[in-house]
Every structure is written in C-alpha cells, then in structure tokens.
C-alpha cells in the first residue's frame, strides 16, 4: 500500500527527514505525530507525489517515486484522498459542487456524480447544508465537506494533514469519529496531528517524527 524505504528529504539545505522506513497496510489507521516543522506534511506530500525524496523510495498504490512519470501522478492521486487543516474548499461553490468537483475533473458522468455526491452528503449529515457556500458553514462542517470530497472517488487511503487543527474539541471529536467510521469500512487513514487527546481517546498505531527520525510508539 504505502511504503517508505530509507527516505531522506532536505529543504534549503536543512535535512528534515533522515533515512525513514515504514509501511502502512491496507485498512490501517496510523497517527503521525511530531513538532511543527518535523516533516509530517512532507511525508504526506511525498505519498501523493507533490514532493519527492532526495534519496530512498516512496511507493504508493504500486507507483514508485523513482519511476513515476508526470502523466501518471494524477491517476495515483485519484486513488487517494487528502484533507487539510484549512479545508481547501472552493469558496464560490456550494457543498454539492465542492464535493462533485473531484468527480467532475476526473470525467465521471453527471448522473453518477449526483448519485454518489448525494449519498456522501447524507452519510456525513450535510443534507440541510447542501446548497450552502463554505463561508456559511462551521469549521466542522467545512471539514466534513472536505472529507466527502476526498472520499467520493473511493480512495484506498485518506491522508489527513492536521484535520482538527482549526476545530473546537467537539467538532474535532466528531471528525475523528467520522475517520474511524471510514476506516472501519476498509479505507486506510494516515493522520498527521498535534492533538494527543484524540489519540488517547482513539488509540491506533502511532509514528513519531523526532529530529528527522521516525520512532514507532
């Protein structure tokens, strides 16, 4: 599924990750923790091939960072979902269109888009907010829209970069419960977070980044 072999990465001459090796299996839930700037987001970016290691290899869904071509990258990205702390929603589109966007850009037929998006909206309890713009939603609701957008293409893994970073404790808990539910259906989750309280509430395999090294906890 996801494999890192001796991966090192530097930014502006500063080494962020040093010889990191790990594997995430199908259906796993993994936390990635560490201080700010420790390289958590860099690990996620390398999984969706937005960044490449200086040395070592990253393998995501059988595509290797050493061999992948620019043309193949979009197809790998369609097989994984990504959510962020700042949601990255399109502010001029309502809930339905934000979720549908990821299917439209991959050329899915309108009928199928409608069916899947409505199902996703219902599943995440966004029904009454279907025609609302992101700015009319709470932080928790915006993150739900982002999750729906990430899931609508049935990814094998959901990459969550500090998904609760902008949310209050209640909304954070709700988001984590959604992620648990998604995971229980077989989608792997890799969540980078600072929120140790949530980890205690829902314990899973945890990897900690410390001085560029990875420590399993």
């Amino acid at each position: 599924m996801i494999e890192f072999y001796n991966v090192s990465l530097s930014y502006n001459g500063k080494r962020i990750l040093n010889n990191i090796t790990f594997r995430i299996l199908k259906g796993e839930f993994v936390y990635l923790i560490g201080a700010s700037g420790a390289g958590k987001s860099s690990i996620l970016r390398m999984i969706y091939f937005d960044d490449f290691p200086d040395s070592g290899t990253v393998i995501a869904n059988q595509f290797s960072s050493a061999k992948i071509t620019a043309k193949e990258i979009p197809y790998v990205r369609r097989s994984l979902g990504v959510i962020f702390q700042d949601f990255k929603l399109l502010p001029d589109r309502n809930v339905f269109d934000n979720i549908a966007f990821s299917m439209r850009v991959t050329g899915v037929k309108p009928k199928e888009i409608r069916k899947k998006v409505l199902r996703m909206i219902a599943e995440l309890g966004l029904g009454p907010k279907r025609n609302h713009l992101p700015l009319e939603l709470s932080g928790g609701e915006q993150q739900k829209v982002a999750i729906a957008r990430a899931l609508v293409n049935n990814p094998f893994i959901l990459l969550a970069d500090e998904p609760t970073g902008n949310l209050d404790p209640v909304a954070s808990m709700e988001i984590l419960e959604i992620l648990q539910r998604i995971n229980s259906r077989g989608t792997a989750v890799l969540m980078a977070t600072h929120n140790y309280g949530l980890i205690k509430k829902y314990p899973h395999r945890t990897m900690k980044l410390e001085n560029g090294e990875l420590v399993e906890q």
Binding site: P74, Y75, R77, K88, L90, P91, F101, S102, V105, T106
Partner: peptide, 17 residues
Amino acid sequence: KDMIYIMRLVGATERFI
C-alpha cells in the same frame, strides 16, 4: 491558484487543468 491546487490534488491531468 486555489482551484488549480485542488484540481491537482483530486487528480486532474495537466491538460484538463
């Protein structure tokens, strides 16, 4: 730029973007 980023993120090809 946000739209371009999101398009890339959800797997749109360069040609499509």
